[in-house]
Design a binder for these strands. Sequence first.
RNA 1: GGCGACGUGGCGGAGUGGCUACGCAGCGGCCUGCAAAGCCGUCUACACCGGUUCGAGUCCGGUCGUCGCCUCCA
Length: 450
Amino acid sequence: MPELALHDTRLGAKTPLVPRDPSRVGIYTCGPTVYGRAHVGNARHYVVFSLLKRFLSHQGYTVTLVSNLTDINDKIYAAARAANIPSARLAEEMSAAYVADTDALGLGRPDHEPTATGAMGEIIELITTLIDGGHAYVADGDVYFSVGSYPRYGELSHRRLEDMDQGEGGEGVARKREPADFALWKATKVGEDTAWDAPWGRGRPGWHIECSAMAESLLGMGFEIHGGGSDLIFPHHENEAAQSGAAHGGDLARLWVHVGMVRTAAEKMSKSLANTFLLHEAVAAHGRDALILYFVARHYRQPVEWSDALMAEARENVRRLREAGRRLHSGPSPDWSGPLRDRFLAALADDFNTPGALAMIWEWVREANRSDGPVGSDDLTEMLGLLGLENLLVTEPAVLPSAVDEIVAAREQARTQRDWAEADRLRAAARALGWEIRDGADGPHVAPLT
RNA sequence: GGCGACGUGGCGGAGUGGCUACGCAGCGGCCUGCAAAGCCGUCUACACCGGUUCGAGUCCGGUCGUCGCCUCCA
């Protein structure tokens, strides 16, 4: 398998991917809590890991991508109460909406999309293991993870317990032995309409334990890549790593990969800040092509600003790629393409540098555009496919409405008579119908306006 | 306060100790009846101050600024 490195949060450095089984890669990423529609920030995470899977598959790995949905959570209870519906129903509706919204990105689905409710047996089993091992304790029906029992706590997020603001508020403080201890299980409370039976009492799992349980059961300990948004590094991923590490020894995952935040007005986009731009709105406003290009045009770890100006630029780039696609024919690409393809793949292998890879596509397009005859599109199709944009080259044969056909014919008539005013008028008429007439040496070409 | 990351040309955005990133926008040109598309050329950069080096956006130290996390959050 080719060399491939990703930036690992724990080591703070680019780190080679060394799978347990040389031919297989397991990826677990933390998906959304389903109490509202997915926003653009959720979409970035989805796009990055979907495309990472594509690239790894392209490199010959058999990839299993797991992306969970958190369907038990305080926010869900609160939102359901506000909507006056059962929390389970809200979670189901929002899960379906999430699937529909991300389906619109056309990048396929993860191999598994587990939920907390679907993993209750594994969760209870893991908590039991932690209690038995002395890493967790029961307190009034709650179960807490004992951070002090796990010396490696803080290793992932590079923080020491004594450095942290310990705060004082928050539920469960009175029952915790140490302020940094966190809930594995929460005893059921009034206002919560779902609960499960467990050896230590009826209740529901804490946030972090579900991911440990699902990742372990679907991918096993020490799987290759654990991902998520950079806002999950602490406490979520730190706690996951601690739970699994304490229960079984060793590491939950080899590489921890974190995606930068989408921001608006230099502030993180998030549901709790109420500054979100919803994914389905973004797709409707700009198209999935522009949205994906917008994401791959920046490195996944960098924060990115969400703005109309940047989306307009992305749309222009989409237009340029489509335009280039019209000049190509399917078939092997010329000799000059090989080195560009190599550099494209090398960029992706180097910490999944999609903007570096995209630069190779632009060079490819320029080279193709300056070529005399039609150029074979195979390599470009392959490269765009790795960025989720292969559809840009699928130019459905333009079927001209007869009205446009007539306009073109009439305009040629006018042009032969050098009636430029009439010719311009007819071109404007075609444009009004959504078609652009471009005069070439070999006669007029008609292209749909994008 | 602690931890992590970042500061590149009008905008977006990669990268490497010495050689044009790339894209958008602008400007000039080619092509065109005029356009459009495309191509060619062009403008301009590496926050600030020191240090290492033959040579530093690229390494080291400091200053200033920005963001994320430390509480639910992709």
